[in-house]
């Protein structure tokens, strides 16, 4: 089964100023995809949190690499995937890894802290976990992938 083409894909240099732009684009695409108005604040905050932590991680470890965001509206869901290339966190224990995390090898230098424990610097992940019903966090070969989705009306796709 092929992965549906993203409605919008973005990559941006890891600067805090671009996080706001990403929030605005994600909210606009969510609205166009038919996400209920009452959920748009949730989308905006969750995308902002995911991008903020990715930017922070890139600035520490790989400031010349872009943060990637894919927004997809299909099959009654609006999905956002924020992928960084800088993380050292491991998979969440109970969450199934996303497709990009399949077969990923743990980084030998990775932090031992499991995500459900949320280190203070990972408050953003704690907010996402508390905010979004459907969230999957997985390692990719190079970093962390945060996949979140909300129900949508598939108005546009």
């Amino acid at each position: 089964m092929s992965t549906p083409m993203a409605t919008v894909e973005m990559s941006f240099t890891p600067l805090p100023a671009h996080v706001r732009t990403t929030r605005l684009v994600a909210t606009a695409v969510a609205r166009r995809s038919g996400v209920a108005e009452t959920l748009l604040d949730e989308v905006r905050l969750a995308v902002g949190e995911a991008c903020s932590r990715a930017v922070e991680a890139h600035r520490e470890r790989c400031p010349d690499q872009p943060v990637r965001v894919a927004l997809t509206g299909s099959d009654g869901r609006f999905e956002v995937v924020v992928t960084d290339a800088a993380s050292t966190l491991r998979d969440t224990g109970g969450q199934p890894p996303g497709p990009s995390g399949a077969g990923a090898q743990p980084d030998p230098g990775a932090s031992e802290g499991p995500l459900p424990g949320f280190l203070p610097s990972e408050l953003g992940l704690a907010v996402i976990a508390g905010l979004v019903d459907d969230v999957r966090i997985a390692r990719t070969e190079s970093g962390l992938s945060i996949r979140m989705s909300w129900p949508s009306g598939d108005a546009a796709g």
Partner: peptide, 9 residues
């Protein structure tokens, strides 16, 4: 209008 975890921090 908007507050995230950075602001909380």
């Amino acid at each position: 209008e908007f507050l995230d975890s950075t602001g909380l921090g």
